[in-house]
Design a protein around this nucleic acid. Sequence first.
DNA 1: ATTAGCACTCAAAGCTAACGAGTGCTAATA
DNA 2: TATTAGCACTCGTTAGCTTTGAGTGCTAAT
Lengths: 351, 351
Amino acid sequence: MELSERKMKILKAIIATYLKTGEPVGSRTISKDTDLHLSSATIRNEMADLEELGYIIQPHTSAGRIPSDLGYRYYVNLLMEENEEMHDREKEREKEHQDLINKMDRMEVVLKNVADKLAANTNYATMISTPQYNEAKLKFIQLSMVDSRRLLVVIVVGNETVKNVIMNVDDPLQNDEVLKLNILLNSFLQGLTLGDINLELVHTMKVQAGMHAGILEGIFQGIVDAIHEADNTKIYTSGTTNIFRYPELMDPDKTTELLDTLVDKKQLVKLVDETVSQEERHGIQVYIGNENQVQSLKDCSIVTATYKLKEGGTGTVGIIGPKRMDYRKVVRTLRNLTDDLDEIFNSEDIE
Amino acid sequence: MELSERKMKILKAIIATYLKTGEPVGSRTISKDTDLHLSSATIRNEMADLEELGYIIQPHTSAGRIPSDLGYRYYVNLLMEENEEMHDREKEREKEHQDLINKMDRMEVVLKNVADKLAANTNYATMISTPQYNEAKLKFIQLSMVDSRRLLVVIVVGNETVKNVIMNVDDPLQNDEVLKLNILLNSFLQGLTLGDINLELVHTMKVQAGMHAGILEGIFQGIVDAIHEADNTKIYTSGTTNIFRYPELMDPDKTTELLDTLVDKKQLVKLVDETVSQEERHGIQVYIGNENQVQSLKDCSIVTATYKLKEGGTGTVGIIGPKRMDYRKVVRTLRNLTDDLDEIFNSEDIE
DNA sequence: ATTAGCACTCAAAGCTAACGAGTGCTAATA
DNA sequence: TATTAGCACTCGTTAGCTTTGAGTGCTAAT
């Protein structure tokens, strides 16, 4: 059975709207959103027909309509035909895929593999970072007020990495104060690597900064980010869906936030830093709830460990799970894993 | 402040129980499950103390207790000390990690990458299979009744792959019937590859099998599985968490089932087969809802495409999303992608 | 010091009523 | 004849209420 021109338009409109919203579509919506200039009543009649023909479905009596499988099928078939012609034209335009075969060196493959295996073994989410050498040196820092409330921080690291951070400040700084901070920062930090900037140094600087000590925090974060950028630290995650095994993390509001954190990885860098900087035996650290830096992971526990390359780089492996994780097993697994990793990376030659 | 021996035991019991259940722990539970032989009332008193000390928390007045961050911390620290000694002993035992550095050849890395990129581009879950050559040949099939209701099917494929399937049958087969089926199967199928077994052949066989045609279905599925096993088809998935962007797929009952399907991959093989067998232009197929084979994906739509190697292998790329997916974009993306893949695999030499 | 017993609390589950988006139908209109 | 206005009706959703029961804290007895 062929559909009338009008029914087709209506069906298409219903599906298009539903694709966007995911909610059942009512007659009024269609009446307004199409250029058919028909009242909702008319649309309703047509919709009743379309339903009888099997193209759309009413989830319940007093709801709008959603496409049936048949409806989708009709839509897709139509689309396919339309698209067929466009193919050649578009072919040229869409050559963005070229980087599909991005170069991953052998080590990165191994790391990804480790993350996968670890996730499979433990049933938690896992992360692993490429080794950090922390060799990039801080070249230059420049503060300036862009207006009365906002402070621009320019950080130059290594050979070419430049990072801009805009910070909001509560009380505006005078020109000479900015100048003083500039001198303070550069005289203390120029030429240093991340490893060189220790808590003692930070403390000394804060004392000297006096009332502006608070601002330093933000600047330090910026420095860390910049150095990582220069360092090209990558983080791989795996087993992120394991999160959903634990109802207490499933709060529908926070679940997306949590996933984003794991997928986005920018946040995870903070964890890596913290671990690398505190090297106890095996570097195994347990962060319970709020003990970790990342706000969105405050209902989780995180166990991290480090592995070392003979050339001096340090990488981080971590497990992210609910607070009620099997700490014993996790710690044991990580300990063995890093032992193995150290062994592998330092004996076998991996280019 | 040091905890008394008893408080320690109780705290440990609370945490241990909570680790298992994830539910607040009540005094009665502890009273029963520990070997302290104390009544719940006593435990309650101790729990009140522990709460005051900050080790446990009451989510609300009439609930049991859950560990606080401090409580976990206490538990973990204790554990760490205990474990310290055990380390050496365990080190020997746990050498299962050895396969961390499993060999992934260059192509597999590329495929995994493709899945990742595709997921990032489309915001749907993606899958990609290694090329199937479907060259493994069926050597031998042997049916036999193990008891009155269960039929054992032994399938031998290629050089060494043997697969056993046990099927439940409603009415027991007589010995001579089994014999007849055995002859039927072997005479028709011996030496064939998956590609050789077409619908026509299947039909002919069903006709000859007569009333036992139903059994053939199960046998064919077993054959497919066995050949895949011999073929060593691997499937990589990515972006599985994208599923959670679509509330209609989030039904808490089915969400785990859905994830399992995507992670387990055994089910996905069916999709791959279906795609490979139906080669229209570019092999692009759209399965809407129930149109696909996999029960747990019946609320999803799946778009698949094939890529080809010059040596004759065929692989499958697929996108799994909600029925209301952006078909236009997905089809376009897949089309371009497979174009690119064909190009890449067939010009550049990838070992 | 421990325990039995009891009144009390409060989240979870179930139940009801009000709400409102959206329908189908009828009668009026062009 | 095709369209539309209008209205009664349906039913999922939400909010408020009650019931239930697990678990507590406290007191008095052992």
